[in-house]
Computed example of a mutant assay.
Amino acid sequence: MVRLPLTPAEVERGQRLGALLRRARGKRSMLGTALAAGVSPETLRKIESGRVATPAFPTIAAIADVLGLSLDAVWSEINRPEGRVEFAGSGHDPAHRLAS
């Protein structure tokens, strides 16, 4: 199976996701956070650095849970319009809610 190259928008979302997770992790260790989420430290490092721009949903859900982030906040942050700065937890746009 051939994987198509990521679009610039996907790369941008991956970078936003990584920045959000780094901010949320704060001074917590990468190792402790990764182990608590059930992912490898290498996986968390790659996501935080933007090298894995499209991680699996269960991976993000587990990391967000450990960091105390709602999936709505993650979704809002990584899909915000260009030029709009919003940090997780500062409110969210109902139009960007994850469907269950």
Rank of each mutant, 00 (worst) to 15 (best):
A37L: 06
L44P: 11
R80S: 14
S40F: 05
L67K: 10
L67W: 14
S70P: 12
K27V: 02
T7V: 00
A36T: 04
R51V: 03
V74C: 14
I78Q: 15
L67S: 13
N79W: 11
V39A: 10
P8D: 11
R13T: 01
A24M: 02
H92P: 01
A24C: 02
R97D: 13
P5S: 04
A34D: 10
T7A: 02
L67N: 14
N79I: 02
L31A: 04
R80Y: 12
P55A: 05
P81F: 11
P41L: 02
A64C: 11
A99Y: 08
S49W: 03
L4M: 04
V52G: 03
I60Q: 09
P41H: 10
A36I: 00
R97P: 03
I60P: 08
R51K: 09
A36Q: 13
R23Y: 04
V2I: 05
E48G: 08
R28F: 01
I60H: 11
G83P: 15
A64D: 13
V85T: 11
P5I: 00
P8S: 03
S76F: 10
V74Q: 14
L31E: 11
R97I: 01
D65A: 14
A37G: 10
L6T: 01
L71A: 07
S70H: 11
S90G: 09
P41M: 06
P81C: 10
L4G: 01
G18Y: 09
P94R: 01
R25S: 05
A37M: 06
R97T: 05
I60A: 09
S100E: 10
A88R: 07
G91T: 03
S40V: 00
T33Y: 11
A61P: 07
L31G: 00
H96E: 09
A9I: 00
A64N: 14
L6Q: 02
V52C: 04
I60F: 10
M1P: 10
G18R: 02
E42Q: 12
S29N: 01
F87V: 13
T54V: 06
G14L: 03
R22K: 11
R16E: 06
E77A: 15
D93P: 02
K46E: 13
P8I: 01
R51M: 07
G32C: 02
P55G: 08
D72H: 13
T7L: 03
R51H: 12
A24V: 01
M30S: 04
A53H: 11
R45H: 12
L21D: 07
S70Y: 13
V66Q: 15
A95H: 07
P55F: 09
L69S: 10
K27M: 03
A37K: 05
G68F: 13
I78D: 14
R16L: 04
P5N: 00
M30R: 06
A9M: 00
A73D: 15
P5Q: 02
P55K: 06
H92L: 12
E12A: 12
G50F: 09
S29I: 00
T33H: 06
Q15L: 13
K46N: 12
H96W: 08
R23L: 03
R28N: 07
R84P: 05
K27A: 08
R22A: 08
A36G: 07
A61R: 14
